[in-house]
Amino acid sequence: MSSVITETAVTIQVDGQEVAVPEGATILDACDAAGVETPTICYGPTLTPVNVCRVCVVELDGSRALVPSCSRPAEEGMVVHTDSERVRHSRKMVLEFLATGVDVSQADELGQWAEHYGADPDRYVPGGETMDEPVRVQDNLYIRDYDKCVLCYRCVEACGDDAQHTYAISVAGRGFGARISTEFDVTLPDSACVYCGNCVAVCPTNALQFKTEFDLRQADDWRPEDQTVTQTVCSYCGVGCNLELHVQDNQIVKCTSPDDHDVTKGNLCIKGRFGWNYV
């Protein structure tokens, strides 16, 4: 996160409840502190907020439009409403909008919120535009299924300024035609991609999937409920990156890294992310 959190406390009101948060904290942090759950899509704890999905919007007294809670710093005396008619409406519409054009079937959290807010993606004009992208399987490490892409920018951030500084992908095009893309949509092996998989790790909808997961899903054998997750340390260089090994049937099926670890902040390199299959 870009914000500097100091010890000075700021008190704001969330749904009538006074909460004190450190200076530099966001409204979202204050909602968390107040025990108010907030839907998020583009927000990631290790990423600079881009506030593009707008699902975390809240009503702020004195502000004409709703404000994104993930990026708006909490200021002394703010009065915030997270469950007003306007907030519920905009959140519902964002979830509804996404479901009209994107395959959100593997975005579990999104689905739960859509249900919570009563989103009804079926009430739109039949035959409307959708993402309509083929699955890109270009190597054996991860796949890109942009039918599932909600354009949250998280992969772009993880590939770029927020972690990896590789910039293999960007948003290309404009409006509804905007897509995450390499230059001229060249394949990943022809791009700058270094296969750190940090984009996959931050994708909220499974548009980016490890190939192992993709293959198991194709075989209808992806069983998260049967998986264990074990935290350990990478076996390669001496940096000490923490790994979370996801194991199904005594086989490692994917590898992630904890967001709250000082060294990795959720990130890995190609070796740590993919170099485990000798086990």
Partner: peptide, 17 residues
Amino acid sequence: RDESCGQCVPCRVGTQR
């Protein structure tokens, strides 16, 4: 629809729909 930058969901999808 054509001129929406596509960044935020309400505008990207809203102008399309």
